[in-house]
């Protein structure tokens, strides 16, 4: 695992609050017991995690260096090590490269869009509303839990070229709307909007929780200081929300680098591969039984997410004045 990340881990989350750092007992004995207690807290998780998550992940990493195919399933260890061959092949695999391009667009546009929408909704719902609060919270969460089949039926209906709601609204403004899902230019942007729509409830829930962690008296102090709302948001809410934003950013990035369901139900990767994603290509290779090759694809996804996450950690690190 890359170690780079650790340097950028927020070190002092309370920075920016009005608190003075308290005195720390530096005694050595304290540190040793600290180790013990630290591991004591982490151990139950660590054991389960290493066995059931890290183990299979490691095995799959080795798989990506082999030529394992479904024909070898009875004897998975009887395969040949091909080193980085699978990875090299990937970079001349036209489909995969197309998919990588589509995925990049999806992530670069989709992640900020989704985060902004979720944050907006969370702020709206957190701004002292009393009435309908639960209704709103549940409502905006519904796309997350609605059956993807129902979602696809309704969206497809809305996106119908001739009779769909989307084009009727555009027609009202004199715009002749495109055939959204069957047009190579518009299919991917359409799925990005759909992705943001489906996932904003997820971000909203986490932002809502994160907003509660910001001490109320900080706001009170800011109000007394006459801070304008936007200034309050810019200099108080945003910095305090950084650990939460980092989490949402990383998780949303992971989800979007692996985006799959939207093209799977809406376009099957078409038209002409314009919505084929990397995760979809990986899924297909698994279906074809090319386990080694498919795993290599999975690890390319992994590397992409790691790099993006490092970027997020750098961008959202907790120094207020960077």
């Amino acid at each position: 695992m890359p170690e780079v990340r650790d340097r950028t881990v927020p070190s002092d989350p309370a920075a920016g609050s009005a608190v003075e750092p308290g005195p720390r007992p530096p005694a050595r004995a304290r540190r040793t017991t600290g180790w013990l207690t630290g591991w004591g807290f982490a151990l139950p998780f660590a054991v389960l995690f290493l066995v059931f998550t890290a183990g299979p992940v490691l095995a799959s990493l080795v798989m990506s260096l082999s030529d394992l195919r479904s024909a070898d399933l009875l004897d998975p260890f009887g395969v040949d090590v091909v080193g980085l061959d699978n990875y090299v092949r990937l970079f001349s695999d036209e489909k995969f490269l197309t998919a990588a391009g589509n995925t990049a667009v999806f992530v670069v546009v989709g992640v900020p869009l989704t985060m902004a929408l979720s944050l907006l909704v969370a702020l709206g719902l957190n701004s002292g509303l009393i009435r309908f609060r639960t209704l709103f919270r549940v409502g905006y969460y519904l796309p997350v839990v609605t059956s993807i089949v129902a979602i696809s039926v309704v969206w497809r209906f809305v996106l119908q070229p001739d009779t769909g709601l989307a084009n009727e609204i555009l027609g009202f403004f004199g715009v002749d709307g495109p055939n959204w899902l069957n047009n190579e230019t518009f299919a991917l942007p359409t799925l990005i909007v759909m992705g943001a729509w489906r996932n904003l409830g997820f971000g909203m829930v986490i932002f809502l929780a994160g907003l509660q962690a910001i001490p109320k008296d900080l706001y009170e102090a800011a109000t007394i200081d006459g801070a304008k709302r936007f200034a309050q948001f810019r200099y108080l809410t945003l910095p305090m929300l950084r650990p939460t934003m980092l989490f949402v950013a990383v998780i949303t990035t992971i989800g979007y680098v692996q985006f799959f369901e939207e093209p799977f139900v809406m376009t099957q990767g078409g038209p002409l591969d314009s919505t084929l994603s990397m995760a979809y290509a990986t899924y297909n290779q698994f279906g074809f039984g090319n386990y080694g090759y498919a795993s290599a694809m999975g690890y390319v996804l992994f590397v992409v997410v790691v790099l993006l996450s490092i970027a997020w950690f750098k961008l959202l690190r907790n120094d207020v004045d960077d």
């Binding site: 290493l50 066995v51 890290a54 183990g55 299979p56 490691l58 095995a59 080795v62 260096l65 082999s66 030529d67 070898d72 004897d75 998975p76 260890f77 009887g78 395969v79 040949d80 090590v81 091909v82 061959d85």
Partner: peptide
């Protein structure tokens, strides 16, 4: 044609406790 025929040395890395009766590819 296949590249080098070394077997995967998975045993050491496995939390996957599968008996490695590697017999090469038929």
């Amino acid at each position: 044609t296949r590249p080098s025929r070394r077997r995967v040395l998975l045993v050491a890395v496995t939390a996957v406790a599968l008996a490695a009766s590697a017999c090469g590819r038929d």
